[in-house]
């Protein structure tokens, strides 16, 4: 028996919105500690990892660990029948569920849907706990804007960290550009820029993955970029009181 109730159903909709362009079919894992999801994009360049802790739910029960294979596209069709202010409850009765039930509650209506589940034998990657040598925390809308703007100039974006801060740069056929974001310790947390640089990094990534994933900036005013030289970078959006949504992205290397 599994039941998880989102106080703020809009949050769940934003999460699905952020990952729908990156992953097609995912295994939603539920157990006593909460809900998690890990899935790679078709080209195995990016990996989406969601972690939602049971304490963040209005109601949460999961007697036995469950794996529910679902199509993100079909999940979206069901979620489109809910309002952004609805409370959303996920529920299933059986131990080997073939459907996942959804209840959307608002003050003037209640809706029930069932999504057919699928069995997905997806390869799970072991993501090692890494000590990253550069960790940058910055406003998520700033990061989104920089990726969108520089992404217009070149499909690969460079990220260079130093004690002074973080620099994004592009070198394309039409020309080149760079954006250096200054560290600031303003008392407004959503505008703060912090850099912990033990070792500077200089990495290159396909910016389209950033632009697809940055819909997640609706989840949090801050984004955390964790990097080590020649390692996948992690973009993390903290989901207040619930957990986090992460994107791991493999770098492009100078061949």
């Amino acid at each position: 028996m599994f039941e998880a109730k989102f106080e703020d159903g809009g949050l769940f909709k934003k999460i699905v919105e952020a990952i729908k362009e990156l992953v097609k079919n995912v295994n939603l894992e539920a157990n006593g500690t909460g809900i998690s999801l890990q899935a790679m994009d078709t080209s195995h360049v990016a990996l989406v990892a969601l972690q939602l802790n049971e304490k963040g739910f209005k109601k949460y029960r999961c007697e036995k660990s469950l794996t529910m294979g679902l199509s993100i596209e079909n999940l979206q069709k069901i979620l489109k029948c809910s309002g952004n202010d609805d409370q959303i409850t996920l529920r299933t009765q059986d131990e080997e569920p073939t459907t996942l039930s959804f209840t959307f509650e608002s003050k003037n209506r209640i809706s029930e849907f069932q999504l057919n589940l699928m069995s997905l034998d997806q390869e799970q990657l072991g993501v090692p706990d890494t000590e990253y040598s550069s960790v940058v925390r910055m406003p998520s809308n700033e990061f989104t804007k920089i990726c969108r703007e520089l992404g217009n100039i070149n499909e690969a974006i460079g990220i260079e960290t130093s004690k002074e801060g973080i620099k994004f740069y592009v070198k394309g056929d039409i020309g080149e550009g760079q954006v250096s974001v200054k560290i600031n310790d303003t008392e407004k947390p959503e505008e703060r820029v912090e850099c912990e640089v033990d070792e500077p990094v200089n990495l290159s990534f396909a910016v389209r993955y950033f632009n697809l994933f940055n819909k997640a900036s609706a989840l949090s005013s801050q984004v955390i970029l964790s990097m080590s030289q020649d390692q996948p970078l992690v973009i993390e959006y903290i989901i207040e009181e619930m957990g986090s949504l992460k994107l791991y992205l493999a770098p492009k290397i100078n061949d």
Binding site: G126, A206, A250, K252, D255
Partner: peptide, 14 residues
Amino acid sequence: GYMQTILQGYFSQA
């Protein structure tokens, strides 16, 4: 040019 790597090169199969 820059060659795109994939995650299997960094993360092990679980």
